[in-house]
Design a binder for these strands. Structure first.
Length: 282
DNA sequence: CTAGGATCCTGTCAGC
DNA sequence: TGCTGACAGGATCCTA
């Protein structure tokens, strides 16, 4: 579930807390969730944070990296003097750690902890050298970030997927990095394009508007803090939903379109639940 | 090569 | 209440 804006939010939160700290212990509770020799992570210092698409990259001294992908249900929870939780928003944000879905635990030299939680075990932590990271198949296939793609290059990359739907095309990480199901639906609403339209029928001008939509929707989400504990817990203590801050169609099926008042529909396109306005999107 | 469906895994919810 | 199937903010693998 975490898409580019959520991972960016995590990156900004964690770099604030972790840069300069040494890792003193790594506990792998679920073998599937960790690749590499976890005992060799111990003793290394956190140097830098990067993000590529939906992948979080944590640079350690000695040219070593931790690559983390949250996939559908991953979340990262930092607990030290302060607490920071982001990723798949669920009640673990406010529960005691480790929890039922905790897969990997990192401990730091100030006794703070970072918990990698993942209900469905699709996500992972990989410990690799710089050389291995550069050869990682996910990263080598990954398209440029939305802000690094020119409209011309975006249009050209879309043409590689001419026979499929526009929604399937933008979910393809080799076309544009970081778009997932929420931002696909939201950006297609922004661009007034029906998600099931064939790529071949999307004009150059429309693809330009779509790229603009992807950027703007993601920027709005990042500005609001992605999905974090802050969004999950409202000031009055009730459960929040960060989607309400920016989503106009995602999970709005049955509700009125904010633009035209027609009812937002939900269907299945590209194998995914797809929300759209039948009046605004053609 | 492309497109689309199955698959990995666990939990929740709607409908009998 | 208990069961069953569908579905869930991802990416890869397999088949046609």
């Amino acid at each position: 579930m975490p898409e580019l804006p959520e991972v960016e939010t995590i990156k900004r939160g964690l770099e604030h807390f972790l840069i300069g700290k040494h890792i003193t212990k790594v506990t792998v509770k679920t073998a599937k969730s960790f690749t590499g020799k976890s005992e060799e992570v111990v003793g290394h210092k956190v140097i830098e944070f990067k993000r590529r698409g939906k992948a979080l990259l944590i640079g350690l001294d000695g040219n070593l990296w931790l690559m983390i992908h949250l996939r559908m249900t991953g979340q990262l929870i930092y607990i030290g003097e302060e607490k920071f939780a982001a990723g798949h928003p669920d009640k673990s944000f406010v529960e005691k750690m480790p929890g039922r879905h905790t897969r990997v635990i990192f401990e730091f030299d100030d006794a703070s902890h970072l918990y990698f939680n993942d209900q469905r075990k699709f996500g992972f932590v990989k410990f690799v050298s710089k050389a291995e990271l550069e050869k990682d198949p996910f990263l080598t296939k990954l398209a440029p970030e939305p802000w690094e793609l020119t409209p011309e290059e975006f249009f050209a990359r879309l043409q590689r997927r001419k026979g499929t739907t526009i929604k399937a095309a933008i979910l393809d990480q080799s076309v544009i990095a970081g778009v997932g199901n929420i931002y696909a639906d939201e950006s297609l609403f922004f661009a007034q394009i029906f998600p099931g339209r064939k790529v071949a029928d999307v004009s150059r001008a429309e693809s330009g508007k779509l790229l603009k939509g992807i950027r703007e929707v993601m920027e709005a989400s990042i500005a609001s803090g992605g999905s974090t504990m802050k969004d999950y817990v409202r000031a009055d203590g009730t459960k929040g939903n960060y989607l309400e801050k920016f989503a106009k169609v995602f999970q709005h099926d049955g509700q009125k379109c904010l633009t035209c008042s027609n009812i937002i529909l939900k269907t299945k396109i590209a194998g995914r639940g797809t929300h759209y306005c039948p009046e605004c999107q053609k």
